Simulated assay, not measured.
Amino acid sequence: MALSTHTTTTGFLLPSIHSAPPFFTQQVHAASLSTATEHWIQIILKYARHRKLFTIKVQDCEAPGNDWDEVLRNERINRKLLPSYLSYILGQMVSQKLAAYDPPKQDRSVLIYWRLPEEWAEVLHEWATSTGQLNTILTFYEITDPPVESPLSGIPVTLLRQAISILSKTNRAQIIGIAEGEGVRFFPSMGKS
């Protein structure tokens, strides 16, 4: 079978390397492993952005029928990524700061940074500004589950906290204790110096 790109049922275009059987095996040769792993990292990041997925777990390659199935498996060539290789790939993503183990102190599940926390901070502040939320206290729930879909819909609280922390350092946000737990107040950006 010739290597070819493939469009998944969700409309994601898999690169031709995804149809190469060796791509699903953790390579022994260091250069081959490095190249294949970088391709896997890019596929995972692009697919996560395409589907707005924030987590991937090692077990996602073990059981069919999950959100990652069409990437971690290739039924056309009867191949699937093995858990040990996915674990290695996730470790590489964490070391490159493209993911973080979530929850911490384990190595089987990661929070994927298809946008870096610094980028999420800018998206968050732009959303607060464009929707008239400056100087208003919002709960985390109001941000992650707004009545109107936003770029922040479904963002995990862990990632939201990181973005707010980044904004706090530039005096553009402040976490506030409220009756429902925690909230955040956004402030206008100060002029560029």
Rank of each mutant, 00 (worst) to 15 (best):
T158V: 12
G91A: 08
C61E: 01
T158K: 10
T144E: 08
H29Y: 14
T129P: 00
L138R: 04
W114D: 06
I89G: 00
I178Q: 11
E75M: 09
H29P: 01
K80G: 08
T8F: 02
L167M: 09
E149Y: 13
W40T: 00
L82I: 11
A30G: 08
T7M: 09
T10C: 13
T10F: 08
N78P: 04
Q27W: 04
T136M: 06
L159H: 00
I41A: 02
S168N: 11
Y101I: 08
I176M: 09
Y113E: 03
I89D: 00
L82Y: 08
T136V: 13
T5V: 06
I43M: 15
S193F: 15
I178V: 15
I143L: 05
S4L: 02
S95T: 13
T9P: 03
Y85Q: 01
E149A: 13
R115G: 00
I41K: 05
I17E: 08
T37V: 05
S84V: 11
A179G: 14
H29I: 12
V110M: 03
L152V: 09
R51H: 06
A163L: 04
S34Y: 13
Y141W: 09
A163D: 05
P117H: 07
A100M: 14
Y141Q: 12
V28T: 13
K97R: 15
A63S: 12
L111M: 13
T37C: 04
F187D: 00
I17V: 15
C61T: 14
D102E: 14
